[in-house]
Amino acid sequence: MEEPNRDDPEKQTRIAARRQEFENEAFPLMRMLFRTALRLTRNQHDAEDLVQNAVLRAYNFYDKYQPGTSFKAWIFKIMTNIFINDYHKHAKEPPMVPIENQEGFEPNPEKAFFDSVLDGNIRKAIEELPDSYRLTFLLASEGFSYKEIASITGANLGTVMSRLYRARRILQAKLWDTYQEEVHA
């Protein structure tokens, strides 16, 4: 096996070029990774850790990335796996909202109430979603297709669609309740 030689200028140039290639792919996605991590971990410190771990792991496994496939989906999958294995286990789950109660909610399209709902309430409602729903919903909000979300989360297409549907129902029901409380406060 070839010993790494720090003094080999050709090798150093190759490494630098490869790193530059990686940075060109990864750095434009940093904001997207960070805002997803922030809603997944629910706090700035863990979000920064999660993104840093994901990007460094992606760099270490960059030779496993298949050119021509979506780099964005690949790096999000790495971040998702770290979140599920390392953070999710230790995270304190907010109380689970019984889904049956929210399923009966009927949207009222006559009232454009979302305009009155504060951003903070939207973020809070998203953070209170169960992990698998929150992850699916955040990935959809970043423009991933159902197929990509299935590949990133390891769920099948039907599960992705059902999680997304339920996440939307729960959020809308919660935001509607908040709106009602504020109107009648």
Binding site: E48, Q52, D119, I122, L138, S141
Partner: peptide
């Protein structure tokens, strides 16, 4: 639903990545 998605995506996309990170 379109309105809902637009409002949510706008809210989620507000966060900037910290330059220090």
């Amino acid at each position: 639903e379109l309105h809902f998605q637009t409002v949510v995506v706008q809210t989620l996309h507000e966060n900037e990545v910290p330059p220090t990170l």
